[in-house]
Every structure is written in C-alpha cells, then in structure tokens.
Amino acid sequence: MAEILVLVDHLDGAVRKFTTEMLTLARRAGEPSAVFVGSGYDAAAETLAQFGAAKVYVADAPDLSEYLVTPKVELLASLIARTQPAAVLVPSTLEAKEIAARLAIRTGSGLITDAIDVSAELGTQQSAFAGSYVVDAKVTTGTPIIAVKANAVTPETAPSTPAVEAVAVDLPDSAKQARVVSRSPRKQTGRPDLSEASVVVSGGRGVGGPEGFRVVEELADALGGAVGASRAAVDSGWYPHASQVGQTGKTVSPQLYVAAGISGAIQHRAGMQTSKTIIAINKDGEAPIFEMADFGVVGDLHQVLPALVAEINRRKG
C-alpha cells in the first residue's frame, strides 16, 4: 500500500487530536508514516501506534528548532525523495502551511491548504468565501501536499506496531537563514485547545472589559470548552491574541459555538461559520450573528451568562 507522510502536530510529545485526525484520513488513501520532529517522541509513541501509523520517522536534532520552517522542509523533502509517498499531509496551521508551501516549490508539487476532507483518491474539500461555498479539488502535479484543518474527521483507532526509524537531517546553509533568537512558551490555560475543542465560548466587545471575560470563562468551564474572542476584544487588550477567532485568528468548527456580545462581522463569521450548533447572546436584536444562530437570546450577557452557568450547574447536580 502506498505510503503517506503525516507531519505530527505535537507540543513536547503531547500529540494533538489534529494528528489522530490526519492519521485517520491518511489510512483512507494508504499507509500512514508519521513524521515526528523534535523532542518527546516517547510520550507520543503510543498515540501514533493507536491511530495506525505503520512507520514513524523521528528527527530530533537540537538545531531543527533553531530555524524557522526550513528544517522541516529539508526533512520532508528528503523523505519524499527517498520514500516516494503517495501524498504528504500536514496540519493546516500557519507554520505548517508555510512548510507545505516551500515543499511544494521544492518538489514541484501541487498544494491544497485548509482541507476539510480528504478522500481515498486524495480528492479534497475546502470551504471558501467565509463558508459560503464548498470546493472540491485535487492535486494534479507531483506529490500531493495537503494541509488539513482540525476537526476534518472523527479520529478512529486502528492499533499498529510501527517501525520506528531515527532520521538525521543535514541542514544546508540555505536552511539556516532565519534564526530563532528567543522563544517564550505560551502559558497553558488548562482548557482544551481552541482549534480542536468541541465547545467554544467566545466573547466580543459586548463583554465590556477584561473582567467581563470571567463569566465567559465560567460558561466555557461549565461546558468543558475553550474560550475564544473577537478581534475587537483582542485589540482592546481584554483577551490574548492566541484566542482570536476569525479570518486572522483561528478557524474553529466545534459541535457548539457560543457567541456572547459579538456582532457577527464577516471576518468573525469566517472563523466559526462551520460550527455545528451556534448560540448567540446579544442585546441588539438586529445583530447579524442572529442570522446564523440556531438559538439566540436578545439580552444582556451580564445577566444571561451567569444565570446560564448557575442553571447548567444546577442541572448537572
């Protein structure tokens, strides 16, 4: 069966759900080979095996993280040359899309980003124009390189015993041009990752200030979800940029999206339009967010959210 390279998305070996989804998709079209870059493979091994990696390539040299993007391009390019895979799947994150971009040029291969589905024939689906279109596409030249969005598929286990191979990467000078001079890890919130959470509760300008996000967080915690924010809230400095949902933030497609004090501008909708169920709380009954909400409450979020949290906790007993 054809080999499919899957670039593992992980933080120090903690494999993101993203990766298990890509392995699931890759199994439709061939045999997944996980490509693990960085330290912490031991922590990742079990998950990769559980989701059906037939092979794992592990590259863990310190200088791989000293430069932006290019080391992973070198590694994947050499693996493509050696293994002639049927396709390469990478997560559709900002960094991995850039890895995919250079790899496409390097190997003369077509590239599809932001895929929301990948078929056994390596056909893809994407959302376009803020979710108003679905586009079917296919790579026609070279080794298909596909950047897959989170939540594209429900991960399915398929236990395997992967063959593990350590690979060395020789970085030419051309790969050492953009040097990472400092890296400060982001504070972990203890909540699920925004891009892959099944529930997201977001606050906007209507939240009124940084303290206003407390009740947004409480609702997120009551529902076991992640916290998001509109750009207006982020630009006001009320919540970190990493939590921004929308065109220039994260795209999310959870089972449940709650928009509190968010008007529903096109750039915001672009990041949450494909959520399964959408709830809106806004004091302006004319706010465009209500056009797409499955359930909306016209009211003051400072009253509705605390009462909702109390009600949920009461029902949970």
């Binding site: 291969s109 279109y133 586009v135 596409a137």
Partner: peptide
C-alpha cells in the same frame, strides 16, 4: 496549475 478545482458548490 499544479492542482485543479473539480467542483464548486454553494452551501
């Protein structure tokens, strides 16, 4: 082009 769109569907 190195990739081709085969269909577009309005949601």
């Amino acid at each position: 082009a190195w990739s081709a769109v085969t269909e577009v569907t309005r949601r």
